[in-house]
């Protein structure tokens, strides 16, 4: 038995099986870390657009890595090639592994063909955040928008992704909508594949 144990220990990192990834982290710990991330970036920028850009960039790195990890873990290295496929992958698989639940809704934009929206009543990163009035609709969900952008870009679906607050009737708190606008070539390619 000792021999078996040793062999296991000496396994190369790429030969070891990938962890199940079911472990959860403390919400408080995450909230404090995220708060610091926002404060750190806030101290380095001149205006809100820059802050949004930096948060999106931070999320982008997460997104790229999530795509790779989840494709390997859940889909046996298969990758989505269709717009709807990758969107439902983001909406369910990515959301589930990041936030423990699927996103509240995934809709197609009514005005433009190339726009899609993922809406969340209470986005996890916004759970404890009150944005001051003077910040003109800034949404910390920009970080999540960056994650979505990272996943989409990595999978070959370049898109512009932004986060917005949308007021809901009868609710004190607005919900967060992640707006995805795919690049021209993605739409054309998808039309060809149809």
């Amino acid at each position: 038995m000792i021999g078996v144990g040793r062999a296991k220990q000496n396994l190369n990192v790429v030969d070891r099986p990938l962890g199940k990834g079911k472990s959860e982290v403390s919400l408080s710990a995450f909230a404090f870390l995220f708060s610091e991330l926002v404060q750190y970036n806030q101290g380095k920028v001149e205006n809100i657009a820059e802050l949004e850009h930096r948060l999106e960039e931070a999320g982008f790195g997460v997104g790229i890595r999530m795509l790779e990890l989840l494709c390997h873990r859940d889909k046996a290295n298969r990758r989505e090639t269709r717009v709807l496929g990758i969107l439902s992958f983001v909406h369910s698989t990515v959301w589930k592994s990041l936030f423990g639940k699927v996103a509240d809704s995934l809709e197609k934009g009514t005005e433009h063909e190339d726009e899609y929206m993922i809406s969340e009543k209470e986005l996890l990163v916004n759970r404890f955040v009150s944005v001051p009035g003077g910040m003109g609709g800034f949404n910390c969900g920009t970080f999540v928008a960056g994650i979505v952008k990272g996943v989409l870009d990595g999978a070959g679906f370049p898109a512009r992704v932004t986060a917005h607050f949308v007021a809901v009737e009868g609710q004190a708190r607005p919900r967060t909508t992640i707006l995805i606008k795919f690049a021209e070539e993605v739409v054309q390619r998808d039309a060809r594949l149809a």
């Binding site: 408080s28 995220f34 708060s35 926002v38 806030q42 009150s130 944005v131 001051p132 910040m135 708190r173």
Partner: peptide, 22 residues
């Protein structure tokens, strides 16, 4: 929860957070 974890709150300063009030 709603004051200390809010990135826009400065520690030891007056509390002005919507979620705290709520």
């Amino acid at each position: 929860d709603y004051v200390l974890k809010n990135p826009f709150y400065e520690v030891e300063m007056p509390i002005r957070c919507e979620l705290w009030d709520l």
